[in-house]
Protein backbone atom coordinates (compact mmCIF):
# COMPACT_ATOMS: atom_id res chain seq x y z
CA UNK A 1 0.00 0.00 0.00
CA UNK A 2 2.94 2.34 -0.53
CA UNK A 3 0.78 4.34 -2.95
CA UNK A 4 -1.09 5.79 0.00
CA UNK A 5 0.04 7.92 2.88
CA UNK A 6 0.41 6.58 6.44
CA UNK A 7 -3.08 5.66 7.66
CA UNK A 8 -4.48 6.28 4.17
CA UNK A 9 -5.41 9.97 4.48
CA UNK A 10 -3.02 12.65 3.26
CA UNK A 11 -1.40 14.87 5.88
CA UNK A 12 -3.49 17.94 4.98
CA UNK A 13 -6.68 16.02 5.53
CA UNK A 14 -5.42 14.60 8.81
CA UNK A 15 -4.50 18.09 9.95
CA UNK A 16 -8.00 19.30 9.09
CA UNK A 17 -9.50 16.42 11.09
CA UNK A 18 -7.17 17.05 14.05
CA UNK A 19 -8.26 20.67 14.13
CA UNK A 20 -11.89 19.51 14.30
CA UNK A 21 -10.98 17.07 17.09
CA UNK A 22 -9.22 19.78 19.11
CA UNK A 23 -12.19 22.08 18.68
CA UNK A 24 -14.46 19.27 19.77
CA UNK A 25 -12.36 18.67 22.89
CA UNK A 26 -12.44 22.37 23.67
CA UNK A 27 -16.25 22.45 23.45
CA UNK A 28 -17.31 19.09 24.90
CA UNK A 29 -20.39 17.65 23.24
CA UNK A 30 -20.51 20.26 20.47
CA UNK A 31 -20.77 18.86 16.94
CA UNK A 32 -17.94 20.28 14.84
CA UNK A 33 -18.58 20.22 11.07
CA UNK A 34 -15.64 18.76 9.14
CA UNK A 35 -14.95 18.07 5.49
CA UNK A 36 -15.41 14.33 5.64
CA UNK A 37 -13.69 12.44 2.83
CA UNK A 38 -14.89 9.52 0.80
CA UNK A 39 -13.24 6.50 2.35
CA UNK A 40 -12.67 3.18 0.64
CA UNK A 41 -15.47 1.68 2.73
CA UNK A 42 -19.10 2.76 2.49
CA UNK A 43 -20.72 5.51 4.50
CA UNK A 44 -22.50 3.89 7.40
CA UNK A 45 -19.67 1.38 7.83
CA UNK A 46 -17.73 3.61 10.20
CA UNK A 47 -16.11 6.13 7.87
CA UNK A 48 -16.29 8.84 10.54
CA UNK A 49 -14.58 6.65 13.11
CA UNK A 50 -12.03 5.53 10.55
CA UNK A 51 -11.12 9.11 9.68
CA UNK A 52 -10.79 10.06 13.34
CA UNK A 53 -8.67 6.98 14.02
CA UNK A 54 -6.51 7.73 10.98
CA UNK A 55 -5.93 11.27 12.26
CA UNK A 56 -4.99 9.99 15.73
CA UNK A 57 -2.77 7.05 14.87
CA UNK A 58 1.00 7.21 15.14
CA UNK A 59 3.28 4.33 14.10
CA UNK A 60 3.76 3.37 17.77
CA UNK A 61 0.06 2.94 18.48
CA UNK A 62 -1.68 -0.34 19.16
CA UNK A 63 -5.14 -0.52 17.72
CA UNK A 64 -8.18 -2.48 18.80
CA UNK A 65 -11.38 -2.48 16.77
CA UNK A 66 -14.69 -3.77 18.06
CA UNK A 67 -18.18 -3.96 16.65
CA UNK A 68 -21.04 -4.93 19.01
CA UNK A 69 -18.35 -5.44 21.65
CA UNK A 70 -16.61 -8.17 19.65
CA UNK A 71 -13.25 -8.10 17.88
CA UNK A 72 -14.17 -10.75 15.36
CA UNK A 73 -17.35 -9.34 13.83
CA UNK A 74 -16.85 -8.93 10.10
CA UNK A 75 -16.76 -5.15 10.00
CA UNK A 76 -14.37 -4.91 12.94
CA UNK A 77 -12.12 -7.35 11.11
CA UNK A 78 -12.34 -5.29 7.96
CA UNK A 79 -11.46 -1.99 9.66
CA UNK A 80 -8.63 -3.56 11.67
CA UNK A 81 -7.20 -4.99 8.46
CA UNK A 82 -7.51 -1.62 6.76
CA UNK A 83 -5.24 -0.02 9.34
CA UNK A 84 -2.86 -2.97 9.44
CA UNK A 85 -2.45 -2.50 5.72
CA UNK A 86 -2.35 1.30 5.48
CA UNK A 87 -0.64 2.21 8.76
CA UNK A 88 1.17 -1.01 9.68
CA UNK A 89 0.32 -0.39 13.33
CA UNK A 90 0.21 -3.13 15.91
CA UNK A 91 -3.22 -4.53 16.60
CA UNK A 92 -4.60 -6.28 19.62
CA UNK A 93 -7.82 -7.71 20.94
CA UNK A 94 -6.88 -6.94 24.55
CA UNK A 95 -8.54 -3.76 25.79
CA UNK A 96 -5.75 -3.11 28.26
CA UNK A 97 -3.05 -3.25 25.60
CA UNK A 98 -4.66 -0.92 23.08
CA UNK A 99 -3.78 2.76 22.85
CA UNK A 100 -6.54 3.51 20.35
CA UNK A 101 -9.83 1.62 20.36
CA UNK A 102 -12.35 2.12 17.60
CA UNK A 103 -15.80 0.94 18.53
CA UNK A 104 -19.24 0.55 17.14
CA UNK A 105 -22.17 0.29 19.57
CA UNK A 106 -20.28 -0.59 22.78
CA UNK A 107 -17.90 0.71 25.43
CA UNK A 108 -15.51 -1.99 26.64
CA UNK A 109 -16.27 -3.43 30.08
CA UNK A 110 -12.69 -2.97 31.26
CA UNK A 111 -12.31 0.64 32.51
CA UNK A 112 -10.07 2.66 30.19
CA UNK A 113 -7.08 4.69 31.33
CA UNK A 114 -5.58 8.09 30.59
CA UNK A 115 -3.29 6.75 27.88
CA UNK A 116 -6.14 5.50 25.76
CA UNK A 117 -8.40 7.01 23.11
CA UNK A 118 -11.83 5.59 22.43
CA UNK A 119 -13.14 6.37 18.94
CA UNK A 120 -16.85 5.90 18.32
CA UNK A 121 -18.49 5.35 14.95
CA UNK A 122 -21.57 7.53 14.77
CA UNK A 123 -24.44 7.12 12.31
CA UNK A 124 -26.61 10.13 13.29
CA UNK A 125 -24.74 12.61 15.49
CA UNK A 126 -27.73 14.83 16.16
CA UNK A 127 -29.64 13.85 19.33
CA UNK A 128 -32.56 16.03 18.26
CA UNK A 129 -32.74 14.65 14.69
CA UNK A 130 -35.80 12.47 15.13
CA UNK A 131 -37.66 15.29 16.82
CA UNK A 132 -36.64 17.88 14.22
CA UNK A 133 -35.35 16.69 10.83
CA UNK A 134 -33.80 20.01 9.78
CA UNK A 135 -30.17 20.64 10.54
CA UNK A 136 -30.72 24.41 10.26
CA UNK A 137 -33.24 24.14 13.11
CA UNK A 138 -31.34 21.75 15.36
CA UNK A 139 -28.19 23.87 15.20
CA UNK A 140 -30.24 26.82 16.41
CA UNK A 141 -31.69 24.73 19.22
CA UNK A 142 -28.20 23.77 20.40
CA UNK A 143 -26.98 27.34 20.14
CA UNK A 144 -29.87 28.56 22.29
CA UNK A 145 -29.63 25.55 24.62
CA UNK A 146 -33.24 24.96 23.70
CA UNK A 147 -33.71 21.35 24.83
CA UNK A 148 -37.35 21.44 25.89
CA UNK A 149 -38.38 19.22 22.99
CA UNK A 150 -36.27 16.28 24.09
CA UNK A 151 -37.57 16.47 27.64
CA UNK A 152 -41.10 16.51 26.31
CA UNK A 153 -40.28 13.37 24.33
CA UNK A 154 -38.96 11.61 27.45
CA UNK A 155 -42.02 12.77 29.40
CA UNK A 156 -44.33 11.41 26.72
CA UNK A 157 -42.52 8.08 26.92
CA UNK A 158 -43.22 7.92 30.65
CA UNK A 159 -46.87 8.87 30.30
CA UNK A 160 -47.35 6.30 27.55
CA UNK A 161 -45.13 3.41 28.66
CA UNK A 162 -44.44 4.14 32.31
CA UNK A 163 -40.74 4.45 31.55
CA UNK A 164 -38.33 6.15 29.20
CA UNK A 165 -38.55 4.06 26.05
CA UNK A 166 -35.08 4.68 24.69
CA UNK A 167 -32.89 1.63 24.91
CA UNK A 168 -29.81 2.75 22.98
CA UNK A 169 -28.39 6.06 21.77
CA UNK A 170 -29.77 7.44 25.00
CA UNK A 171 -29.14 11.22 25.03
CA UNK A 172 -26.70 12.73 27.51
CA UNK A 173 -25.84 16.25 28.62
CA UNK A 174 -22.13 16.96 28.59
CA UNK A 175 -20.58 19.22 31.23
CA UNK A 176 -23.93 20.90 31.80
CA UNK A 177 -24.16 22.38 28.30
CA UNK A 178 -24.61 20.35 25.11
CA UNK A 179 -27.06 17.53 24.71
CA UNK A 180 -25.18 14.81 22.82
CA UNK A 181 -25.90 11.54 21.11
CA UNK A 182 -23.60 8.90 22.61
CA UNK A 183 -23.86 6.89 19.35
CA UNK A 184 -26.03 3.76 19.43
CA UNK A 185 -24.47 2.23 22.53
CA UNK A 186 -26.96 0.50 24.85
CA UNK A 187 -27.94 2.75 27.71
CA UNK A 188 -26.18 0.24 29.97
CA UNK A 189 -22.94 1.84 28.76
CA UNK A 190 -23.93 5.46 29.41
CA UNK A 191 -22.53 5.70 32.96
CA UNK A 192 -19.13 4.55 31.68
CA UNK A 193 -18.77 7.74 29.64
CA UNK A 194 -17.32 9.58 32.61
CA UNK A 195 -13.91 8.05 32.12
CA UNK A 196 -10.17 8.63 32.12
CA UNK A 197 -9.70 8.15 28.39
CA UNK A 198 -10.37 10.65 25.63
CA UNK A 199 -13.58 9.89 23.76
CA UNK A 200 -13.87 10.97 20.14
CA UNK A 201 -16.94 10.61 17.96
CA UNK A 202 -16.80 10.57 14.16
CA UNK A 203 -19.81 10.79 11.84
CA UNK A 204 -18.49 10.59 8.28
CA UNK A 205 -21.62 10.84 6.21
CA UNK A 206 -23.04 13.59 8.39
CA UNK A 207 -19.65 15.36 8.46
CA UNK A 208 -19.47 15.89 12.21
CA UNK A 209 -16.87 15.24 14.90
CA UNK A 210 -17.43 15.68 18.61
CA UNK A 211 -15.55 14.77 21.75
CA UNK A 212 -15.57 14.26 25.49
CA UNK A 213 -12.33 15.11 27.30
CA UNK A 214 -11.22 12.85 30.19
CA UNK A 215 -13.15 13.13 33.45
CA UNK A 216 -15.90 15.24 31.89
CA UNK A 217 -19.34 15.19 33.45
CA UNK A 218 -21.76 13.18 31.31
CA UNK A 219 -25.33 13.00 32.56
CA UNK A 220 -28.02 10.83 30.99
CA UNK A 221 -31.21 12.86 30.69
CA UNK A 222 -33.93 11.92 33.16
CA UNK A 223 -36.39 13.26 35.72
CA UNK A 224 -36.10 13.37 39.52
CA UNK A 225 -39.00 10.94 39.94
CA UNK A 226 -37.96 8.79 36.98
CA UNK A 227 -34.20 8.50 37.34
CA UNK A 228 -32.07 7.06 34.55
CA UNK A 229 -31.47 3.34 34.75
CA UNK A 230 -28.67 1.48 33.01
CA UNK A 231 -30.49 -1.66 32.03
CA UNK A 232 -29.33 -5.01 30.73
CA UNK A 233 -30.63 -8.52 30.41
CA UNK A 234 -31.14 -10.23 33.76
CA UNK A 235 -28.76 -12.99 34.68
CA UNK A 236 -25.15 -13.86 34.20
CA UNK A 237 -22.95 -14.78 31.26
CA UNK A 238 -23.30 -18.46 30.45
CA UNK A 239 -19.60 -18.72 29.67
CA UNK A 240 -17.85 -16.63 32.34
CA UNK A 241 -20.60 -16.12 34.93
CA UNK A 242 -20.23 -12.32 34.92
CA UNK A 243 -23.41 -10.66 36.18
CA UNK A 244 -22.25 -7.08 35.74
CA UNK A 245 -21.62 -7.05 31.99
CA UNK A 246 -23.81 -6.31 29.00
CA UNK A 247 -25.22 -9.58 27.68
CA UNK A 248 -26.12 -10.68 24.18
CA UNK A 249 -28.96 -13.10 23.76
CA UNK A 250 -28.06 -16.01 21.52
CA UNK A 251 -30.63 -18.39 20.07
CA UNK A 252 -29.13 -21.85 20.34
CA UNK A 253 -31.69 -24.28 18.95
CA UNK A 254 -34.67 -24.53 16.63
CA UNK A 255 -37.12 -24.23 19.51
CA UNK A 256 -35.89 -20.76 20.30
CA UNK A 257 -33.87 -21.88 23.32
CA UNK A 258 -31.52 -19.11 24.32
CA UNK A 259 -28.52 -18.29 26.36
CA UNK A 260 -26.87 -15.07 27.44
CA UNK A 261 -23.20 -14.30 26.88
CA UNK A 262 -20.99 -11.26 27.35
CA UNK A 263 -21.08 -8.94 24.35
CA UNK A 264 -17.51 -7.86 25.16
CA UNK A 265 -15.66 -10.92 23.89
CA UNK A 266 -12.24 -9.87 25.16
CA UNK A 267 -13.58 -9.26 28.66
CA UNK A 268 -15.37 -12.60 28.68
CA UNK A 269 -12.29 -14.42 27.51
CA UNK A 270 -10.01 -12.84 30.09
CA UNK A 271 -12.46 -13.76 32.83
CA UNK A 272 -12.49 -17.35 31.60
CA UNK A 273 -8.70 -17.34 31.48
CA UNK A 274 -8.81 -16.20 35.09
CA UNK A 275 -10.86 -19.26 35.94
CA UNK A 276 -14.44 -17.99 35.99
CA UNK A 277 -16.82 -20.57 34.61
CA UNK A 278 -20.43 -19.92 33.69
CA UNK A 279 -23.37 -22.31 33.75
CA UNK A 280 -22.71 -23.56 30.22
CA UNK A 281 -19.01 -22.81 30.04
CA UNK A 282 -16.11 -25.18 30.31
CA UNK A 283 -12.99 -24.40 32.30
CA UNK A 284 -10.37 -22.87 30.02
CA UNK A 285 -7.45 -25.20 30.38
CA UNK A 286 -4.24 -25.08 28.43
CA UNK A 287 -5.56 -27.60 25.94
CA UNK A 288 -9.16 -26.45 25.75
CA UNK A 289 -8.79 -23.47 23.45
Amino acid sequence: MSDYNFAYLDEQTKRMIRRAILKGLAIPGYQVPFASREMPMPYGWGTGGVQVTAACLTPDDTLKVIDQGADDTTNAVSIRRFFEKTAAVGVTQATTQASVIQTRHRIPEEPLNEDQILVYQVPIPEPLRFLEPRETETRKMHALEEYGLIHVKLFEDISQHGQIATAYAYPVKVEGRYVMDPSPIPRFDNPKMEMAAIQLFGAGREQRIYAIPPYTQVVSLDFDDYPFEASKAEGACALCAADHTYLDEVIVDDDGGRMFVCSDTDYCESRRQAGHVGAQGTPMGKDAA
Binding site: P42, Y43, G44, W45, T47, D67, Q68, G69, T73, T74, N75, R104, H105, R106, P123, H161, G162, Q163, A165, A167, Y168, A169, P184, I185, P186, R187, F188, R205, S231, K232, A233, Y246, L247, D248, E249, S263
Partner: peptide
Amino acid sequence: QATGFLEHIKLPHYVDFQSELELIRSI
Protein backbone atom coordinates in the same frame (compact mmCIF):
# COMPACT_ATOMS: atom_id res chain seq x y z
CA GLN B 1 -23.94 8.60 1.11
CA ALA B 2 -27.43 7.26 0.59
CA THR B 3 -26.47 3.75 -0.43
CA GLY B 4 -23.90 3.48 2.35
CA PHE B 5 -26.30 4.45 5.08
CA LEU B 6 -29.12 2.42 3.63
CA GLU B 7 -27.05 -0.72 3.26
CA HIS B 8 -25.34 -0.38 6.62
CA ILE B 9 -28.45 -1.80 8.24
CA LYS B 10 -27.08 -5.14 7.01
CA LEU B 11 -24.30 -4.82 9.57
CA PRO B 12 -24.79 -6.48 12.95
CA HIS B 13 -27.01 -4.47 15.29
CA TYR B 14 -27.56 -7.13 17.91
CA VAL B 15 -26.42 -4.99 20.82
CA ASP B 16 -29.01 -2.35 20.00
CA PHE B 17 -31.58 -4.98 19.22
CA GLN B 18 -30.89 -6.65 22.55
CA SER B 19 -31.53 -3.41 24.41
CA GLU B 20 -34.78 -2.99 22.47
CA LEU B 21 -35.75 -6.56 23.39
CA GLU B 22 -35.21 -5.84 27.07
CA LEU B 23 -37.20 -2.63 26.78
CA ILE B 24 -40.17 -4.19 25.01
CA ARG B 25 -40.21 -7.07 27.51
CA SER B 26 -40.26 -4.70 30.42
CA ILE B 27 -42.97 -2.50 28.90
